[in-house]
Deep mutational scan, measured.
Amino acid sequence: DEVEIEDFQYDEDSETYFYPCPCGDNFSITKEDLENGEDVATCPSCSLIIKVIYD
């Protein structure tokens, strides 16, 4: 799936974006990952991944 970065929750302390996963955990991707060109957020509890859409 693809999710807009605006739909993520941002945690300023950890500089990490979170998005709810269907399994009950959260996908996460850090601001640093995005700045380095990464665009895939992973869920630590299951095998799902999502593509992050940002400009």
Results as ranks from 00 to 15, higher is better:
Asp1Ile: 14
Asp1Glu: 15
Asp1Asn: 15
Asp1Met: 10
Glu2Asn: 15
Val3Phe: 12
Val3Ile: 13
Glu4Ile: 15
Glu4Asp: 12
Ile5Phe: 10
Ile5Glu: 00
Ile5Arg: 02
Ile5Leu: 10
Glu6Lys: 04
Glu6Pro: 11
Glu6Phe: 08
Asp7Cys: 05
Asp7Arg: 07
Asp7Ser: 11
Asp7Val: 08
Phe8Lys: 00
Phe8Arg: 00
Phe8Glu: 00
Phe8Cys: 05
Gln9Gly: 06
Gln9Met: 11
Gln9Phe: 08
Gln9Tyr: 04
Tyr10Gln: 06
Tyr10Phe: 14
Tyr10Lys: 12
Asp11Glu: 09
Asp11His: 03
Asp11Asn: 11
Asp13Tyr: 10
Asp13Lys: 13
Asp13Met: 07
Asp13Phe: 09
Ser14Ile: 15
Ser14Asp: 07
Ser14Thr: 12
Glu15Ile: 12
Glu15Val: 03
Glu15Phe: 14
Glu15Arg: 14
Tyr17Asp: 00
Tyr17Gln: 02
Tyr17Asn: 09
Tyr17Ser: 02
Phe18Asn: 13
Phe18Gly: 14
Phe18Arg: 06
Tyr19Ser: 09
Tyr19Asn: 10
Pro20Phe: 07
Pro20Trp: 01
Pro20Asp: 02
Pro20Arg: 05
Pro20Ser: 13
Pro20Thr: 09
Cys21Ala: 01
Cys21Asn: 01
Cys21Phe: 00
Cys21Ser: 01
Cys21Gly: 00
Pro22Trp: 03
Pro22Glu: 15
Pro22Tyr: 02
Cys23Val: 01
Gly24Arg: 08
Gly24Met: 03
Gly24Thr: 12
Gly24Gln: 10
Gly24Leu: 06
Gly24Asn: 15
Asp25Gly: 13
Asp25Gln: 10
Asp25Ile: 03
Asp25His: 08
Asp25Trp: 04
Asn26Lys: 12
Asn26Gln: 06
Asn26Thr: 12
Asn26Cys: 11
Phe27Ser: 14
Phe27Tyr: 08
Phe27Trp: 10
Phe27His: 01
Phe27Glu: 03
Ser28Glu: 14
Ser28Ala: 07
Ser28Leu: 08
Thr30Ala: 01
Thr30Asn: 00
Lys31Leu: 02
Lys31Thr: 02
Glu32Leu: 07
Glu32Pro: 06
Glu32Cys: 11
Asp33Trp: 09
Asp33Thr: 11
Asp33Tyr: 11
Asp33Ser: 14
Leu34Ile: 04
Leu34Ser: 08
Glu35Asp: 02
Asn36Val: 08
Gly37Thr: 06
Gly37Phe: 10
Gly37Ile: 10
Gly37Cys: 03
Gly37Ser: 13
Glu38Lys: 10
Glu38Tyr: 05
Glu38Val: 04
Glu38Met: 03
Asp39Glu: 05
Asp39Lys: 15
Asp39His: 07
Asp39Asn: 06
Asp39Met: 14
Val40Gln: 15
Ala41Lys: 03
Ala41Asp: 01
Thr42Glu: 13
Thr42Asp: 12
Thr42Ile: 05
Thr42Val: 06
Cys43Asn: 01
Cys43Asp: 00
Cys43Thr: 00
Cys43Val: 00
Pro44Ser: 10
Pro44Asp: 01
Pro44Glu: 06
Ser45Thr: 11
Ser45Gln: 08
Ser45Ala: 10
Ser45Glu: 11
Cys46His: 07
Cys46Asp: 06
Ser47Tyr: 14
Ser47Asp: 13
Ser47Leu: 11
Ser47Val: 07
Ser47Asn: 12
Leu48Met: 10
Ile49Gly: 08
Ile49Arg: 11
Ile49Leu: 11
Ile49Glu: 13
Ile49Asp: 11
Ile50Asn: 07
Ile50Leu: 11
Ile50Ala: 07
Val52Thr: 05
Val52Ala: 09
Val52Leu: 04
Ile53Asp: 04
Ile53Ser: 07
Ile53Pro: 04
Ile53Glu: 02
Tyr54Leu: 04
Tyr54Asp: 07
Tyr54Val: 13
Tyr54Gln: 14
Asp55Phe: 05
